[in-house]
Simulated assay, not measured.
Amino acid sequence: MTVRLSDEALQLVSLFEETTDATVRDCVIDEEFDRIIFLVKPGEMGQAIGSGGEYVAAVEAEIGKPIKLVEDADTAADFVANALAPAAVYNVTISENDDRMAYVEVAQEDRGVAIGADGRNIEAARTLAQRHYDIDGIELT
């Protein structure tokens, strides 16, 4: 799927990449939770974060909003698991019915982490999964 970014999102991607030297594959301006979500190329999450979180902190200070980072993946199941990190995801099953759904087995003690405060983590995962893998919804099992 091709994702089109707004001018504002492109500027944020440029700032993030210049600060971190990590490759950003998508940027979502999440107005509901007043944050920016960056999708980072696989294998570059450490580079995106920086030692002790220095790069993320620098970009957050520059833009004045919190940042959520998600590592891209080659499969829809791995992508959904990454989007719900740091929750312990045991298995992801993607239904191929009319409505493509991701059913995610999460450790019971990590359900709250997967959902996030006010549902912010699972909503970020749903948004990105829709944009990149045409997944209509994510349900925790």
Rank of each mutant, 00 (worst) to 15 (best):
M1F: 05
T2D: 10
V3F: 05
L5Q: 07
S6Y: 04
S6V: 07
D7V: 14
A9D: 13
L10M: 14
Q11V: 09
L12G: 03
L12N: 10
L15P: 06
E18V: 14
T20N: 08
R25H: 12
D26F: 05
D26P: 04
C27H: 03
V28K: 02
V28Y: 02
V28S: 06
D30P: 11
E31C: 06
F33M: 07
F33R: 10
L39F: 09
K41D: 08
M45A: 09
S51F: 11
V59K: 01
A61D: 14
G64E: 12
G64D: 10
P66F: 09
I67H: 12
A73P: 04
A73H: 15
A73C: 12
D74C: 06
D78H: 11
F79G: 03
N82I: 06
V92Q: 02
T93D: 04
I94V: 14
I94N: 04
S95Y: 02
S95F: 00
S95W: 00
E96A: 10
D98K: 10
R100W: 02
R100Q: 13
Y103C: 00
V104I: 04
V104H: 00
V106C: 00
V106Y: 00
E109M: 13
E109C: 11
D110E: 11
R111L: 15
G112L: 14
G112I: 10
A114F: 08
I115W: 11
G116W: 13
D118N: 09
D118E: 15
R120L: 10
N121G: 09
N121A: 10
A124P: 01
T127R: 14
L128M: 04
R131M: 05
I135E: 01
I135F: 08
I135Q: 07
D136N: 14
G137D: 10
G137K: 00
G137N: 07
E139P: 02
E139D: 07
